[in-house]
């Protein structure tokens, strides 16, 4: 049974993680389905932007720990599946977050371009027994929030509520509980209408700026 569903709303691809009983834990299968969803997005000229959401009032609690514990071979590997993070795509992705957004699920949300969070959303790496590498968060948290906020989340297992996440710049907008998906889709439709093509977002160029020396960034910008 698939654990992910996609649907088209105009130029928007809506992606829903659907493992509500397991709080949308990112099993190996679900990770592969996400990679397929990104391919669907990139391969269709009529799809310009995506919204990623989890059903059941949960974004995702991260790794499927029971699968990791009983798994053999590939399923016992806590390293994310290649291509899981939408950073290399040309299309923007909006994470629409309700409830827990933890571990690998938190990294997935960070790797999206924008985050809309419902009141009640929580972010972080609260499982202090799961010794996996947060490769993507280690790089993105200092850029998006700050060095100190990043180290705190990585070292203490602390979680941030939606308000604090917004305050430290990890969340773009807070909406009432239950509204994240609707607001995410509305924002995506609006953006699609304004930009009129996937290319117009210039996602890769923009992601290329942070961390560049200012002079290099200015030279690049002149050629855009």
């Amino acid at each position: 049974m698939p654990s992910l569903a996609t649907r088209h709303e105009g130029h928007v691809l809506v992606i829903e993680m659907q493992r509500p009983l397991l709080k949308n834990a990112l099993s190996r299968a679900l990770q592969h389905e996400l990679v397929s969803a990104w391919q669907e997005l990139e391969g269709n000229d009529d799809l310009w932007i995506a919204v990623l959401h989890g059903v059941g009032g949960v974004f995702s609690v991260g790794h499927d720990v029971p699968e990791l514990a009983r798994g053999e071979g590939d399923e016992a590997d806590p390293e994310p599946v290649t291509g899981l993070f939408p950073l290399e795509l040309s299309r923007p992705v909006i994470a629409a977050v309700e409830g827990p957004c933890y571990g690998l699920g938190f990294e997935l949300a960070l790797a999206c371009d924008l985050r809309i969070a419902a009141e009640g959303a929580r972010f972080g790496f609260p499982d202090q027994h799961l010794f996996t590498s947060h490769k993507v968060a280690s790089v993105l948290l200092p850029h998006m929030a700050s060095l100190g906020i990043g180290l705190d989340l990585l070292f203490t297992g602390k979680t941030l509520d939606a308000r604090r996440a917004e305050e430290v710049r990890l969340v773009n907008k807070i909406v009432p509980e239950g509204q994240a998906l609707a607001e995410g889709v509305a924002a995506a439709r609006d953006m699609a209408q304004r930009f009129g093509s996937a290319e117009a977002f210039q996602k890769q160029a923009i992601w290329g700026f942070p961390g560049l020396p200012l002079s290099t960034a200015l030279n690049l910008a002149r050629r855009m």
């Binding site: 950073l87 590498s133 947060h134 490769k135 993507v136 280690s138 790089v139 993105l140 948290l141 200092p142 850029h143 060095l147 990043g150 180290l151 990585l154 070292f155 992601w207 290329g208 942070p210 961390g211 560049l212």
Partner: peptide, 18 residues
């Protein structure tokens, strides 16, 4: 692992750091 990764990656372009 995490302290090294954080400190090695700050100030680098994101794609390079990743």
């Amino acid at each position: 692992y995490h302290k090294l990764r954080v400190f090695q990656s700050i100030g680098l372009p994101v794609d390079y750091a990743l």
